[in-house]
């Protein structure tokens, strides 16, 4: 993108107040995640054998959990897990899905119609969470495997999206022209087609991050995601659920954190769509 394009984008984008708020929240969370060790008031891993299950107050902003660990510090560390789960799973999906989508969309044919498309159909007919659960059952529990599982589940969406966009744009004149000029297919695909379909991919990626955060939190909630003692919002929510009466702040804090981040990515993605790809609305 040129400077002028970025400026034009920004002028349009900033009109959408909600999207700007979303972007701001995301920015803050990125900062929190990157600098977490310098920002937390307490060591999020350090139990306190005296002050456990203490309510929000002067010493602990959001109280302590059942082992006396500072909930606020754990929430801040949790941004690391959630953001990286969302981001890395989407990157995995992009790395696998975009090339497959480009190639199948460009060449189509038997492989595309009868194998790739049917596999994506089958995968998309199952709820993401069920697939992710089944996959982590095979791969084993853990954040790394959860990210791989979520990434694989997102892949069909990108195959379909990219394939559709390629099929649309393939017939456009300048591509046909490039082709008749003797340009190699690979060059056409990556130099000419890909840049022209980046907008819908970006919009979809932003919205996928939101879903990725939810799926990771769900997996962790069910015990198949992030493993202790790493603070993750999903595991905090599930362990906090047992203390809804004695210490509601654990579950409420973690749930609110998930809600705010997912909302931020959703409204940001929505805004991006308005600016980049108005015809989708």
């Amino acid at each position: 993108m040129t400077k002028a394009e970025i400026l034009r984008f920004w002028k349009k984008f900033r009109k959408n107040k909600l999207a700007v708020i979303g972007a701001a929240i995301i920015l803050i969370e990125v900062v929190l995640a990157l600098f977490a060790p310098f920002l937390v008031p307490f060591d999020p891993f350090q139990p306190d054998y005296v002050d456990y299950l203490k309510g929000p107050g002067n010493k602990h902003l959001l109280g302590t959990d059942s082992l006396g660990r500072d909930v606020f510090s754990r929430l801040i560390y949790g941004t690391r897990v959630s953001l990286s789960a969302g981001l890395i799973s989407v990157i995995i999906a992009l790395v696998i899905g975009v090339p497959i989508g480009l190639i199948t969309g460009y060449y189509q044919g038997f492989l595309d119609e009868f194998i790739i498309m049917r596999i994506t159909d089958a995968m998309m007919s199952l709820p993401s969470l069920v697939l992710a659960l089944a996959m982590s059952a095979l791969l084993g529990a853990g954040l790394k495997n959860a990210m791989i599982a979520i990434g694989i589940i997102f892949t069909p969406r990108y195959i379909r999206l990219v394939r559709g966009e390629v099929m649309k744009i393939k017939e456009v004149q300048f591509i046909e022209a490039a082709s008749s000029l003797g340009m190699s297919d690979l060059r056409i695909l990556f130099k000419h087609i890909l840049p022209n379909i980046l907008s819908p991919i970006m919009v979809q990626a932003t919205l996928s991050i939101a879903t990725g955060i939810i799926v990771e939190a769900s997996l962790s909630y069910l015990g198949m995601g992030t493993q202790p003692p790493t603070p993750s919002w999903g595991t905090m929510l599930s362990s906090g659920q047992g203390y809804l009466e004695q210490a509601p702040w654990i579950a409420l804090g973690a749930g609110t954190a998930i809600f705010i981040s997912v909302l931020a990515f959703n409204i940001f993605g929505d805004g991006l769509r308005d600016v980049l790809d108005p015809k989708l609305k």
Binding site: A217, L237, L244, P248, A251, F259, N266
Partner: peptide, 25 residues
């Protein structure tokens, strides 16, 4: 629109736990 986006952004387990907290606890 805002409420709808909020609804989509709330994982159903979060809604569930909130409901339990409010109506049961």
């Amino acid at each position: 629109t805002l409420i709808a986006l909020g609804g989509v952004s709330m994982p159903s387990f979060w809604v569930g736990i909130m409901l339990v907290y409010l109506f049961a606890v």
